[in-house]
Amino acid sequence: MSQNPIEEKNASKNTFKKIAEGFSHIAIGMGTVAMQSTRDPVSTTYPDEMPTLYPTSRHRLALNVNPLTGEHLCIACKQCEKVCPDQCITVIPDPTAKGKVQEFYIDQGLCMFCGLCTEVCPTDCIINTVDFEMSDYSREALVYDIKKLTLKRDESEFYFQFKGLDLPKVKVSPVAKAEAKVEV
């Protein structure tokens, strides 16, 4: 079974030559390892130094508000709830007003950060932020409600810019439209 060409080649050489060759190859290897010490370290010291994250990075889910008006962008269409593979999203629409959301729950402990909800959202409301530090002491604390999920206005502004999203159109209510018509 030993028809290895290298083995046959080695057998013909004398022992001293083989030993010298072995040492030289080990020396080359050690030299390569030693060379690494002249380079800058590649590892980052995480808590002191934050890793580079990209606009596409998928981390903690959050809800956007309109950066221009501060209005909540969710229209309670329940697209994200339907598409979620883990069923970790619960949307409760406002029974009094159509197109408004009353309560919004995301179980961040169940979420697998696939980002499908952000793809189907028609108003760019639900987004993946770049915040990944969300450890907590209990599972219940990881179920975020709408208060914890909704971003502040300046944060929303940052994410709209960072992710290159189109700014939402300013909604004109039918009453205001009618008034504008009357004035004309």
Partner: peptide
């Protein structure tokens, strides 16, 4: 791969 897909291992 993270830059293009969003995550380091579960690319989708």
């Amino acid at each position: 791969l993270e830059e293009i897909s969003g995550q380091r291992m579960m690319f989708n």
